[in-house]
Write a protein that binds this DNA or RNA. Structure first.
Ligand SMILES: [Mn+2]
Ligand SMILES: [Mn+2]
Ligand SMILES: [Mn+2]
Ligand SMILES: [Mn+2]
Lengths: 225, 225
DNA sequence: AAATATTTTTAGACTTGCCTAAAAATTTAT
DNA sequence: ATAAATTTTTAGGCAAGTCTAAAAATATTT
C-alpha cells in the first residue's frame, strides 16, 4: 500500500477511463495519445504496473486494471471530482477552469483530507460537469436514463445533466450560450446532412448545435412537446 | 518564470527559513539535515539553483537567496500557511495534523487558486501556529513584541501567540495541556537548574514546562501579576 | 604552525520517466 | 496467402534527483 508516483496514478486513471468506454483491453497507442507520451513509454510503464499487480498486461495484447488497480484509479477520480466541486462551489471557479488544477490536486495523498472535503461539500453526488463522484468505498452511481443530446428525440424537452469536460473550448462555448447543467432544452429539429440539431433554450433563443457539440452533452428526458 | 520542481521549491523554502534565522549564508550541512538528504545532494542542487539565478552560491562558503529566489520562497510559504489555515478553519483538522498535508499542497501551482483561497478564508494574517501569512505581494508582517516564553519575566501574564510547528510531539503536548494559541498564562517561577518554568494556566492548573517547551512557544506580554 | 577533525565537493552510480530509432509482431489489403 | 501497413516492443540514451565513497578545502586543536 505504499504510495504511487503521479505518473503511475495518471496511467491507472487513464486506463480506467479508456476501458470503461470499451470494456475491453486498452491499447498502447490509445493510452499514449491520451497521456501525451510515446508508445514506448507506455510499454515501459505497463511493465512496471504489471509487476506491481495493478494491471494485467500481455505483450501486444493491451492491458486492463486488476481489482487493486481499479480501486486506486477510482479513488483518484474521486479526489479529482471532489476537488473540482470544491473549486466551483466554494471558490467560485468557472466549470471550465477547474480541470487543470484538479489534475494536480488529485494526487494529494491524505485520506483524512479527502473525507473531510467530502463532508465539507456535503457529500456531493456529481461534479461540476455532471460526472458521478465515487464514494469512500469506491462505489460509483451512474445516472441512469442519461442519453447523448445527439440521440434525443425531436419534439422533446430534455435537461442537460452532463458535459464532457475534456475540451476546454466546448465548456467555454456552452457557458457562452447558457447551456449549463440543469438547463432545459427543446429539441426542435435534426439535420441529417451534417448531424446538427436545432434546439430552443429559454423562451426565444434558438440555436443550431453541431454534432461535435451534441455528442458531448448528456441529457435526460423531461417531456414531449 | 517557468515552474520549478517540488524539490527545487523545497530547497528555496528551506534556505529562506535557515537564513531568516541567521541572516547569513546557509551551510550545506545545515540544509542537508533539514531536508533529510546528504550533503552531496545539496551541492548538486545548489549548483543548479545558482545557474537559475535563484541562489548566490560560492563553493565552500554556503549560499543565500537572490531576490527572485526569495520571492518564490515566500510564495511557497504563503501557500503552505494558507492551506494550513484552510485545513484547521474549514475542515476542522487539529493544528498538529496539518503540516504534512500542507507540505504537499504548497506545491500546487495556481495563482487563482491561492488567491481565491485567501479570500475564502477572509485574508487571514496568521496560520494555525501563529506564523504570519505573506500577502499576495510577498509582504510579511511579523508580530512585534513577541518573545519566547523562555524569556518572559516571572510574575507576568502572557498570551501564547505562536508555537514552533516543527515538532509534532510538541504540538500534541501543548494540545493535551490546553496550551493553545490565545491561551493566557501566568509565569510563576523559573528554575535555573534546568531552565524549566512553572506557569499557571486557567484558575488552578499549574504546570512545569521544560526549556525544550518554553523556547518553542512565542508569547506577548499582557500584564504584571 | 602543524596536525587533526570537520565540512564540502567531486566522481561515479542508480532509479524514474521519458525519448528516438530500429526490430518484431500483428493487422489489413491485395 | 503474401505483401504492405500499422502497432507494439526493444535497445540505447538522457535529465532529474538522490546515494556512497573518496578527495579537497576549511576549521579547530594542540
Ligand atoms: Mn476534470
Ligand atoms: Mn469533471
Ligand atoms: Mn507547516
Ligand atoms: Mn504553520
Amino acid at each position: 500500500m505504499k504510495s504511487l508516483s503521479h505518473s503511475e496514478e495518471n496511467y491507472l486513471k487513464e486506463i480506467f477511463h479508456l476501458s470503461g468506454l470499451t470494456e475491453k483491453r486498452v491499447s498502447t497507442n490509445g493510452l499514449a495519445s491520451r497521456l501525451n507520451t510515446k508508445a514506448s513509454s507506455i510499454t515501459d510503464m505497463l511493465q512496471k504496473l504489471s509487476d506491481k499487480k495493478l494491471v494485467e498486461y500481455v505483450k501486444y495484447k493491451g492491458c486492463f486494471l486488476t481489482e487493486e488497480g481499479e480501486r486506486i484509479a477510482i479513488q483518484i477520480i474521486r479526489k479529482h471530482r471532489l476537488w473540482e466541486t470544491f473549486l466551483v462551489n466554494k471558490l467560485s471557479f468557472g466549470w471550465e477552469e477547474v480541470h487543470d488544477v484538479a489534475e494536480q490536486l488529485e494526487h494529494i495523498d491524505s485520506e483524512k483530507l479527502i473525507d473531510s472535503l467530502d463532508r465539507f461539500l456535503n457529500y456531493p453526488k456529481f461534479d461540476p460537469h455532471g460526472d458521478p463522484i465515487p464514494d469512500k468505498d469506491g462505489k460509483i452511481v451512474y445516472r441512469k436514463s442519461k442519453i447523448k443530446l445527439l440521440d434525443a428525440a425531436t419534439n422533446s424537452r430534455v435537461e442537460i445533466v452532463r458535459v464532457n469536460e475534456d475540451s476546454l473550448a466546448l465548456l467555454k462555448f456552452l457557458e457562452r450560450h447558457q447551456l449549463t447543467l440543469g438547463t432545459e432544452l427543446d429539441v426542435l429539429e435534426k439535420f441529417p446532412f451534417d448531424d446538427s440539431m436545432s434546439v430552443r433554450v429559454g423562451e426565444l433563443l434558438e440555436i443550431n448545435l453541431s454534432k461535435k457539440v451534441t455528442e458531448n452533452i448528456g441529457v435526460k428526458f423531461i417531456s414531449k412537446l
